[in-house]
Amino acid sequence: MLNKLFTNKSKKNTISVMAPVDGEVIPLTEVPDPVFSEKNMGDGVAIKPTGGTVVSPVKGTIIQLFSTNHAIGIQTENGAEILIHIGLDTVELEGEGFSSYVEQGSRVNVGDKLITFDVELVKRKATSEIIPVIITNTDQMKEISPTGQDTVTASQDVLMKLEIEKH
C-alpha cells in the first residue's frame, strides 16, 4: 500500500504529451527558424504535418490563443506550459486558413479539437508548415524526453514525456 502511494505521487509529476497533429517528427534543432531551433522559446520537438487538425496533446486549460489562430498555449494541472505554433511566419497570414474551436480559458482533454488549418495554403504562403511543440517553462522541468518516433498520429502517440520539478 505504501509503495502504491509513492507511485501515484511520482506519476503526478510526469506528463505524457501526446501528438497534437499527424505527421513526421523533426528535432527542434532542425526547424528553419532560430527562435525555435536555438530553443529561445523553450525545448520540445516539431512535426511536419500530414493533416490540418490540431488537437490537445494534454488535459489542461487554454492560457493563450493568438487572434490569428496560428498558435495556442495550454497549461496542464501540473503547471507545464505547452505552445503549439502552426507553421513558421504564419502570423503574417492574419488568420487566413485557420479556424479555432476553443477560446482562452477553455478546459480541454487529450484529443479535443483546438484549431484546423489549410495545410496547402500554409505551404504556399508561409515560410514552412512545420509545427513546433514547445515547453515554454523549461525552467520548471526536471526532464523533457522526446519519444524518438519518426511519425505520429494525433492524440494516439506520445510525442514527449515531461518530468516536472517538485516545488
Score class of each variant (00 low, 15 high):
Glu120Arg: 14
Val31Phe: 01
Ile74Cys: 04
Gly42Thr: 15
Val58Ser: 04
Thr7Pro: 00
Ile135Thr: 09
Gly148Leu: 02
Pro57Trp: 11
Gln149Val: 15
Gln104Glu: 14
Ile131His: 08
Leu121Gly: 11
Phe98Ser: 03
Asn13Lys: 10
Ile131Phe: 08
Asp112Ala: 09
Ile86Tyr: 09
Leu28Gly: 05
Asp139Ala: 13
Met1Lys: 00
Asn109Ala: 14
Lys113Ser: 12
Leu162Asn: 03
Asn69Thr: 02
Val21His: 02
Pro32Tyr: 00
Lys123Leu: 11
Glu120Pro: 10
Thr7Ile: 00
Lys125Glu: 15
Ile26Lys: 09
Gly44Asp: 07
Thr76Gln: 01
Leu83Tyr: 10
Asp33Arg: 11
Gly111Pro: 14
Met18Ser: 06
Ile74Asn: 06
Lys142Cys: 01
Gln75Thr: 13
Glu103Leu: 07
Ile63Tyr: 03
Phe98Tyr: 07
Gly87Leu: 01
Leu83Phe: 04
Ile47Val: 15
Gln64Ala: 15
Ile74Asp: 08
Gly97His: 07
Lys4Pro: 00
Gly97Ala: 05
Glu163Ala: 15
Thr90Ile: 08
Glu165Lys: 11
Val31Ala: 06
Asn40Pro: 00
Val21Ile: 09
Lys142Leu: 08
Gln75His: 02
Phe66Ile: 10
Leu121His: 13
Met141Gln: 12
Asn40Thr: 10
Asn109Cys: 08
Pro32Phe: 01
Arg107Lys: 15
Thr127Met: 14
Ile74His: 02
Asn8Leu: 00
Met18Asn: 07
Pro146His: 13
Thr76Tyr: 04
Thr116Ile: 05
Ile47Leu: 08
Tyr101Ala: 12
Ile82Ala: 04
Lys123Asn: 12
Lys48Ser: 13
Val158Phe: 06
Lys142Gly: 11
Lys12Asp: 10
Asn137Glu: 08
Phe98Gln: 06
Leu121Asp: 10
Ser106Ile: 08
Ile86Gln: 07
Asn8Gly: 00
Leu65His: 07
Thr136Ile: 13
Asn69Tyr: 12
Ile131Val: 13
Pro20Asn: 09
Pro132Cys: 09
Gly51Pro: 09
Gly51Glu: 15
Leu28Thr: 07
Thr50Ala: 05
Ala154His: 07
Pro132His: 10
Ala80Lys: 01
Ile115Leu: 11
Thr136Met: 15
Met18His: 03
Thr68Pro: 05
Ile63Leu: 05
Glu143Pro: 06
Thr138Trp: 02
Asp22Tyr: 03
Glu30Gln: 15
Val45Asn: 14
Ile86Phe: 04
Asp22Lys: 02
Lys113Tyr: 07
Val158Gly: 02
Ser37Asp: 04
Ala19Pro: 09
Gly23Cys: 06
